[in-house]
Design a binder for these strands. Structure first.
Length: 290
DNA sequence: GGGAGTGTTGAGGT
DNA sequence: TACCTCAACACTCC
């Protein structure tokens, strides 16, 4: 017998993965009511875990929004659950009769006999319950830069921000304050696309380069969202993995492989304690050296 | 079999 | 202020 199982979420969620999760989960939980909550690892919850259970029990999922890499679950009763998947967080919706995974930490019982389960091997993910409309008061959301869309992410502002920074571009793009949603993988990709060395100081980037970088960030994230949109759910037995990450990356994880543009082997270095991939020929460091 | 590597974010230090 | 380093944790790889 084929067990129908839907897993939503992949490894290392960046904005496109979180958006894919948002779309997939929206279909699965909207209008369902929470009849109970089990916290198997209470530290996932920011704030009082008992209060979390008490507040959410009986509430209905109204919709799911997203801000950067944060999911915003909107509930009846003016409640919003802010959820960050960090490294390996995953949500799935399964029949309550299916055995729990070893790393399932939060279980929401739903009124149709299914469960929304939060799974996270490294336990880094966090959930925070707030009154709807006050989520921007959370330090994490308050510091977020604009969403990477043409309407909200503006070249001139981007350029002004970069001119102010002394750190290197890779680190700046990762910190979420200039623009929200980029993680280690897509930062390497967009810098390769734009032919900018990851250790270029922000203030050394020209206006023209800033423009290209800006366009590539929007382009690449949208392309990734589209690519993931086709694989939202699977039919499978236990331990099914969803292949969200088999999309066409050009540098990330390609150490030693030929650059898609010039065939020079891709190099891997460490920048700001993060593995960083680039093409030494296409992405030259043109530093003014101090 | 032990130690390094994996990457997101926040806390704490300078 | 702005920037840097490390801890949170578990598993894989060499």
């Amino acid at each position: 017998m084929i067990i129908k199982k839907r897993v939503v979420g992949g490894k290392m969620p960046e904005l496109p993965e979180v958006e894919t999760v948002r779309r997939g989960l929206s279909e699965l939980v909207t209008d369902k009511q929470i009849t109970g909550i089990e916290l198997l690892y209470p530290k996932i919850i920011q704030g009082d875990p008992q209060e979390f259970i008490k507040e959410l029990t009986g509430k209905k999922f109204e919709k799911i929004d997203r801000r950067g890499k944060y999911l915003l679950f909107r509930f009846s009763g003016e409640l919003t659950m802010v959820s960050h998947l960090r490294m390996e967080g995953k949500y799935s919706v399964k029949s309550s009769e299916m055995p729990l995974d070893k790393h399932t930490h939060v279980v929401f019982d739903l009124d149709d006999g299914t469960q929304l389960r939060y799974n996270d091997v490294r336990k880094f993910g966090r959930m925070h319950l707030v009154k709807t409309g006050t989520e921007d008061d959370l330090a994490a959301l308050k510091k977020l830069g604009p969403e990477p869309t043409p309407e909200t992410f503006l070249v001139d502002e981007f350029y002004q921000e970069l001119q102010k920074k002394k750190k290197v571009i890779k680190t700046a793009l990762l910190d979420q304050t200039i623009v929200a949603g980029l993680g280690n993988i897509y930062v390497d990709e967009v810098l390769w696309m734009t032919k900018i060395h990851p250790e270029t100081k922000c203030f050394e980037i020209t206006y023209e380069q800033t423009q290209k970088l800006h366009d590539n960030i929007i382009l690449e994230l949208n392309r990734a969202i589209k690519a993931h949109g086709t694989t939202v759910f699977t039919f499978a037995g236990a331990n099914a993995e969803i292949g969200l990450f088999q999309n066409q990356l050009n540098v990330y994880g390609k150490k030693g492989e030929p650059c898609a543009r010039c065939q020079t082997p891709i190099e891997k270095i460490v920048v700001g304690q993060r593995g960083t991939h680039f093409c030494p020929h296409c992405q030259k460091l043109i530093s003014v050296a101090s």
